[in-house]
Design a protein around this nucleic acid. Structure first.
Length: 447
RNA sequence: GUGAGAGUAGCUCAACUGGUUAGAGCACUAGGUUGUGGUCCUAGGGGUUGCGGGUUCGAGUCCCGUCUCCCACCCCA
């Protein structure tokens, strides 16, 4: 008995790391999705989506076996190993690889997938979340990187996150590799050093040194590492990155900066040597978007991944893109008060009240006609006094109230009242239904 | 997976050092009335204090376990 009760009680809460989208939360979510979608479309991206689960193998190609412990996997009745998608990029790579030869290029696609990861939840990270994905495939130009980044920045600008609140941190994998090589660090150790670089901004100075020593970084290597980590901007980087390769890559970063400035979002740009991104598959420019004040995790991250499509069996195809999760973003917007107040239901434009219960069927008839004319129309579900029905209409934030009473029965007149202005008048029912919008103007003035 | 903190009504919180039947505001529901809303008044529903065990004459309060939340680490696609 008790056990059953406990089971029932635990069934009452959503599984760890998931959210219930009650109407109030759902409208916020929808508000965000609408913005993501609108911005994507006006930048020329097309929407796509794939299945919510994929073959488990798909995620091992790119990320290896470790990843399996961090995703939800299961076997179907035929013994096939499947997994809830923890990211969309493998699906995208698969879809593009399959149709690569027939798609006009550049391919500019976006999606807002629901993703699942079997991690322990913490601030800014849940086990089920949404992520806006923007990708351009089939172009190796820096302009493609700039286009992707511009979409993200344009979105941030639109929701009120200007360059004073948020910054774009940019770096280049090839430059980092060149600088490491210059410092006498072999290519076999670069992967390890990316992880060390990534720690630079996250740890206090002494702890960073200690961490580096743990990683068997020599004193001399640590010096070179800090030398490159303290480069403040692209101009200073030019003095350090002297090899032919790194000069060529540096030119790309400079071009990116110029392009973004041309687009009018250059103020977001910051060169940040510690940005390398976790994944091994990035091949060029990499970037992350952070809020300038608080210490939240990245709002968005991405970069160039020129080899990924071919890893999934497609042709060699350069590509770049980014992902922006809903969790960190909404946390930040909440903190900054940037989420507009939203109501789950549309406030009725017209609300029909019956002063006499016999007129209720007429109230339904009028409501029905208004709804069929595409107005948001409603009525009181209970037969109550006019005062109660008005109270209900008001709690629903109705704009115009129609009151049906004896004058309706005797003279076919309805009383129309604007709840915002309090102005009230009587009008012939048929005339009202011919042009319901007219009464909005007629009752608009204070009186 | 590792470590820290927290769990009292749907929400925000009370309940002196262990001591009668665990309270309040907000929210919700109903009423305050024979045709006019926002304010106001009244009433009601809603809790075996996350769960289980222990100590005690007595546990929301102390101890142990467990679950959940939350924060950090690992990782970050």
């Amino acid at each position: 008995m008790d056990e059953q009760k406990n089971i029932q009680k635990s069934l009452l809460q959503s599984p760890r790391g998931t959210r219930d989208f009650y109407p109030e939360l759902m409208v916020r979510q929808q508000w965000l999705f609408d913005l993501w979608r609108t911005v994507s479309l006006r930048h020329g991206f097309e929407e796509y989506d794939g299945p919510i689960f994929e073959h488990l193998d798909l995620y091992q190609i790119k990320s290896g076996d470790e990843i399996v412990s961090q995703l939800f996997s299961f076997a179907d009745r035929g013994g096939r190993n499947l997994a809830l998608r923890p990211e969309l990029t493998p699906t995208l790579a698969r879809m593009v690889a399959a149709k690569a030869s027939s798609l006009p290029r550049p391919i500019k696609w976006f999606s807002i997938p629901r993703l699942c990861r079997a991690e322990r939840p913490q601030r800014g990270r849940l086990r089920e979340f949404f992520q806006w994905n923007i990708d351009i495939m089939g172009s190796g130009d820096v302009l493609a990187d700039a286009e992707c980044i511009f979409v993200a920045l344009d979105f941030l600008r639109q929701i009120g996150l200007g360059p004073e609140l948020v910054e774009l941190r940019v770096n280049s994998r090839p430059i980092v590799a060149a600088l490491l090589t210059d410092a006498g660090i072999g290519a076999d150790r670069h992967e390890q050093f990316y992880a060390i670089l990534d720690k630079f901004d996250k740890l206090p100075s002494e702890q960073f040194d200690a961490f580096a020593r743990e990683q068997k970084v020599s004193q001399q290597e640590l010096m070179s590492l800090k030398n490159m980590l303290n480069v403040p901007n692209l101009a200073a980087l030019s003095d350090l990155a002297t090899s032919e390769d790194s000069q060529r890559e540096l030119a790309k970063l400079q071009e990116l900066h110029r392009d973004l400035a041309s687009f009018g979002v250059g103020d977001y740009f910051v060169y940040k040597p510690s940005v390398v991104r976790g994944l091994a598959y990035y091949t060029g420019i990499v970037f992350e978007i952070f809020d300038r004040s608080a210490k939240m995790r990245a709002i968005a991250g991405g970069g160039r991944y020129d080899n990924l499509i071919s890893m999934f069996g497609g042709p060699a195809m350069p590509a770049c893109g980014f992902g922006m999760g809903d969790v960190v973003l909404m946390d930040l917007l909440e903190d900054l008060g940037k989420i507009p107040s939203l109501t789950p239901h549309h406030p009725p434009e017209f609300f029909v009240i019956d002063a006499e219960a016999e007129l209720f069927s007429l109230a339904l008839k009028i409501t029905g006609q208004l709804r069929k004319q595409n107005f948001v129309a409603d009525y009181s579900p209970k037969r109550q006094a006019v005062g109660k029905q008005l109270k209900y209409a008001d709690s629903r934030r109705a704009l115009i109230v129609l009151i049906l009473g004896s004058e309706t029965r005797d003279q076919n007149l309805v009383t129309v009242k604007n709840l915002k202005t309090g102005k009230q008048l009587q009008i012939d029912l048929e005339r009202f239904l011919e042009n319901p919008d007219q009464v909005r103007n007629d009752t608009a003035d204070e009186s």
